[in-house]
């Protein structure tokens, strides 16, 4: 049916199987999410605020445990092995790193120090470390000029680049990228997605990215899943999804009658101001 799942014989690179997540022992957030990423692909998880995108990524990277969230059902396999009981440290060593939503740079460390911490799990010589660093600077030339500034004082775009660069320093084969477009100007978003594509093609890094910005995400992704209320409600080739009428209507803000929803929102806002 589609390129992602066509070869049932080939085991997926990352395989998330019917995962259920409960926060604080009572809040059921993921109600059985299944998805997979084939090696070398860019896969997008799309959905509105609170749909459970970040939770899905964190259940894969096992960062959930630090937030009082529990995976109560299901399994996660990475390169054919169960990984849901591992620590983030183990996962990074195996080649999977998450770039968290909101970037989370180390604000009091310089940009370069941020990058260097990314190589913590690798036992490499000074020379190799330097090579890795140069490679990251090749992809993000902008970071090289800001290398000795405190990350906390750099722009949002530079912080996003620092966060991705820092993850790259771990030499991952799979990056979980949460909301890279958050709060950035369209031009910077484009720049970052171009680099993601570049990394995907030249470094063979697979990506699973969560995005609210459906338009951009579908343009760069190979495959997409649409999440709603903790369930996958639709999946398919990125191109198919982008041209699907329902997706257009609900997530791209376009329906056959033009950008109706957008205008409605504006109208509503205006009225509210009048009433206030």
């Amino acid at each position: 049916m589609n390129t992602q799942t066509s070869s049932a014989t080939a085991k997926a690179f990352l395989n998330v199987n019917n995962v259920e997540v409960i926060y604080d022992h009572v809040i059921l957030v993921l109600k059985g999410v299944s998805l997979e990423v084939q090696e070398g692909k860019i896969v997008a998880i799309l959905g509105a605020n609170g749909a459970g995108k970040s939770t899905t990524l964190k259940s894969i990277s096992t960062l959930l445990r630090g937030e009082r969230g529990d995976v109560t059902k299901g399994s996660v396999e990475f390169r054919g092995e169960r990984v849901d009981q591992l620590s983030p440290n183990d996962l990074v060593k195996r080649g999977m790193v998450q770039v968290m939503e909101g970037r989370h740079c180390f604000g009091h460390l310089t940009v370069e120090e941020n990058l260097l911490t990314g190589a913590y799990t690798r036992n490499i010589s000074r020379g190799d470390l330097k090579l890795s660093l140069e490679k990251v600077y090749d992809y993000f030339p902008r970071l090289k000029t800001r290398r000795s500034s405190l990350a906390g004082y750099t722009s949002g775009g530079e912080q996003q680049m620092t966060a991705i660069g820092r993850a790259l320093m771990a030499k991952p084969t799979m990056i979980l990228l949460d909301e890279p477009s958050m709060g950035l100007a369209p031009q910077i978003v484009e720049e970052i997605f171009e680099i993601v594509r570049d990394l995907n093609q030249r470094e063979k890094v697979s990506f699973l990215l969560a995005e609210q910005n459906t338009t951009v995400a579908l343009r760069y992704a190979d495959f997409g899943y649409i999440l709603e209320n903790g369930r996958v409600v639709m999946e398919g080739d990125a191109k198919e999804l982008a041209s699907n009428e329902d997706v257009k209507e609900f997530y791209l803000g376009i329906s056959s009658g033009g950008r109706k929803s957008f205008r409605d929102v504006k109208h509503y806002r205006r009225r509210k101001r009048w009433l206030a």
């Binding site: 630090g66 968290m100 604000g107 799990t121």
Partner: peptide, 23 residues
Amino acid sequence: TKVGRALRAVADDHQAALSIGIP
């Protein structure tokens, strides 16, 4: 040093430190 930098990283944002594999 690597460990020294990691210490500062953990001090700054321990979630982020975890995410890049600092134990």
